Computed example of a mutant assay.
Amino acid sequence: MQKVQFKQYNEGEVLLFPDRLDSTISENHLVRIINHTVNQLDLTFLISTYSGGGTPAYHPRMLLKILLYAYCLKLYTGRKIANALRSDITFMWLSGKQYPDFRTINNFRSGRLKDSI
């Protein structure tokens, strides 16, 4: 009888994700298409809605990317989008591992985007 062997498994491993999140995302993945498309947009109209001062805000380009990607995946609530930012590697990559909460996401779309898009 042969000895049973298993692949190494350690849920407490310090590095659970690859060094580069995009190494696991294919070149033709939807998240890359949205990223490329939003990077090409002129967002001066959106950036001009910010007054400055206070705590630094999340970049509107990043927030727009995560909203568009979430809508494509039929995620519409701010809480589900905020959860995806912490659990889905494509959302993590798209946001640059930044984690706006559901209030920030909802305020962005209902306040800044409402009259812009």
Rank of each mutant, 00 (worst) to 15 (best):
residue 97 K to C: 09
residue 69 Y to R: 00
residue 29 H to R: 08
residue 40 Q to A: 05
residue 29 H to F: 07
residue 98 Q to D: 04
residue 102 F to I: 10
residue 27 E to I: 12
residue 30 L to I: 09
residue 58 Y to G: 03
residue 76 Y to D: 08
residue 8 Q to K: 15
residue 98 Q to K: 11
residue 105 I to Q: 04
residue 34 I to E: 02
residue 85 L to M: 03
residue 39 N to H: 14
residue 109 R to E: 06
residue 73 L to H: 11
residue 28 N to K: 12
residue 29 H to C: 10
residue 64 L to S: 03
residue 53 G to R: 06
residue 94 L to V: 02
residue 7 K to P: 09
residue 60 P to D: 05
residue 83 N to R: 13
residue 52 G to P: 07
residue 11 E to D: 12
residue 32 R to K: 15
residue 74 K to Q: 07
residue 48 S to P: 03
residue 98 Q to Y: 02
residue 67 L to Y: 11
residue 91 F to G: 06
residue 112 R to A: 10
residue 103 R to Q: 05
residue 59 H to V: 02
residue 75 L to Y: 02
residue 37 T to M: 08
residue 85 L to E: 00
residue 28 N to D: 13
residue 41 L to I: 07
residue 107 N to D: 14
residue 43 L to G: 03
residue 99 Y to F: 14
residue 67 L to R: 04
residue 31 V to I: 08
residue 60 P to S: 04
residue 36 H to E: 14
residue 59 H to D: 12
residue 73 L to F: 05
residue 88 D to N: 14
residue 95 S to K: 01
residue 116 S to H: 14
residue 36 H to K: 14
residue 63 L to T: 00
residue 43 L to C: 01
residue 26 S to N: 10
residue 106 N to G: 02
residue 20 R to H: 14
residue 68 L to K: 00
residue 56 P to L: 07
residue 77 T to I: 01
residue 1 M to N: 08
residue 65 K to D: 01
residue 111 G to L: 00
residue 114 K to Q: 13
residue 83 N to Q: 13
residue 97 K to Q: 09
residue 29 H to I: 04
residue 115 D to L: 04
residue 26 S to A: 13
residue 36 H to S: 14
residue 49 T to L: 09
residue 8 Q to I: 12
residue 109 R to W: 12
residue 104 T to R: 08
residue 72 C to A: 12
residue 71 Y to A: 03
residue 70 A to F: 02
residue 72 C to I: 01
residue 78 G to N: 02
residue 97 K to A: 06
residue 100 P to W: 02
residue 73 L to A: 06
residue 3 K to T: 12
residue 62 M to K: 04
residue 53 G to H: 03
residue 47 I to R: 14
residue 98 Q to E: 06
residue 107 N to R: 13
residue 18 P to D: 11
residue 33 I to A: 09
residue 47 I to V: 08
residue 15 L to K: 15
residue 93 W to G: 00
residue 51 S to I: 11
